[in-house]
């Protein structure tokens, strides 16, 4: 069953001078229950904007100008703010980047988990809430009695676990995690990856992983959506993306990523810089850095549509033909 489906989502940011900057254009993907999707891209590619728009938490300057976001068949962009509040955290929950450093320092970890449950009325009594909070902590690998401690008594890895427990407080169907392993040490990173994998299996969660780290995506995700300059460059199964990439950007990104299994192999970075929102190229947004095209007129003029070149493999490139 499809839990989350996004169709043609476009988002603009309005500057102070009233100019609309196109941050996301024509984003489309779907997520089955119990599967995981990796949203990959460099900083400034719009992945965080997409994540916030799913929750309708865009900053004031952000406007959703087009598209639909279906959660279990209901368009989240059409319901009232009150209904949306019931969806957030309860149906679709989120682990924010840096949230582990944003826990309230003067409240115990347990009470912060309980707060989420009480606000959404998923518990009847204080005892019930305590019991569930304890259970959640155990689930993420923290002994239940440590819930009585304060965030500063937790190490970085444990705080990240606590944040994940908080996100799971109301039994969400979908968990969106924004860079959940960034800024953690390698071994802690591995622990968190393992934890998320286990949780996904046990709770039949759908997972959206927003990250710049291709390695983490390859380890964890079933499907991958590669974003570039606010558009989808390529969308396919993880295996296809990493072994048979269609889009020139994906190909180059993979070449730029060092593989520990092949030490000493060549790396090639992508020349140039990602486009800035206020100076997007008129045609394909990757065209100025592309190594396949040679300034073909169509690449310079038109934004390439997302085309299914083989079953389940979508590429947005004028120069890639279907099989």
């Amino acid at each position: 069953m499809t839990t989350l489906e996004v169709r043609g989502l476009s988002i603009n940011y309005l500057t102070d001078d009233g100019v609309a900057l196109n941050a996301v254009e024509g984003l489309t993907f779907s997520l089955e229950q119990g599967r995981s999707l990796g949203l990959v891209g460099e900083s400034g590619c719009g992945k965080t904007t997409v994540m916030l728009s799913l929750m309708r938490l865009l900053p004031e300057a952000g406007r959703i100008v087009n598209g639909q976001v279906f959660f279990e068949g209901r368009d989240l962009l059409q319901i009232s703010e009150g209904e949306m509040q019931a969806v957030r955290w309860k149906d679709v929950s989120m682990v924010f980047q840096g949230a582990m450093n944003a826990l309230n320092p003067v409240r115990t970890v347990e009470s912060q988990i309980i707060e989420a449950m009480q606000l959404h009325n998923v518990v009847n009594s204080k005892q019930d809430a305590r019991k569930r909070a304890g259970g959640l902590l155990e689930l993420v690998g923290i002994t239940a009695n440590r819930g009585k401690q304060y965030p500063h008594q937790f190490s970085g890895g444990m705080r990240q676990r606590a944040v994940i427990a908080m996100a799971l407080a109301c039994n969400p169907r979908i968990l969106v995690a924004d860079e959940p392993t960034t800024a953690l040490d390698v071994m802690i990173q591995a622990q968190i990856i393992e934890l998320l994998e286990e949780l996904q299996r046990e709770l039949n969660l759908s997972l959206v992983l927003v990250t710049h780290d291709l390695g983490v995506v390859a380890e964890m995700c079933d499907d991958v959506l590669v974003m570039y300059g606010g558009t989808v460059a390529e969308y396919a199964s993880s295996d296809t993306i990493f072994n048979n990439p269609g889009h020139p950007y994906t190909q180059r990104l993979l070449k730029a990523f060092p593989d520990i299994a092949e030490p000493g192999s060549d790396l090639a970075s992508i020349p140039g810089n990602p486009p800035r929102l206020d100076s997007l190229p008129p045609g394909c947004r990757f065209e100025p850095r592309c190594h396949v095209g040679n300034g073909e007129p169509i690449c310079l003029e038109a934004l390439p549509p997302l085309v299914e070149i083989e079953p389940g493999h979508y590429v947005a490139c004028h120069l890639v033909k279907g099989k």
């Binding site: 390698v186 390695g215 520990i260």
Partner: peptide, 14 residues
């Protein structure tokens, strides 16, 4: 252990 947990950018090499 460090080598084994370093993410490899290929699902076939998990």
């Amino acid at each position: 252990a460090l080598v084994s947990v370093a993410p490899v950018p290929n699902p076939r090499k998990r």
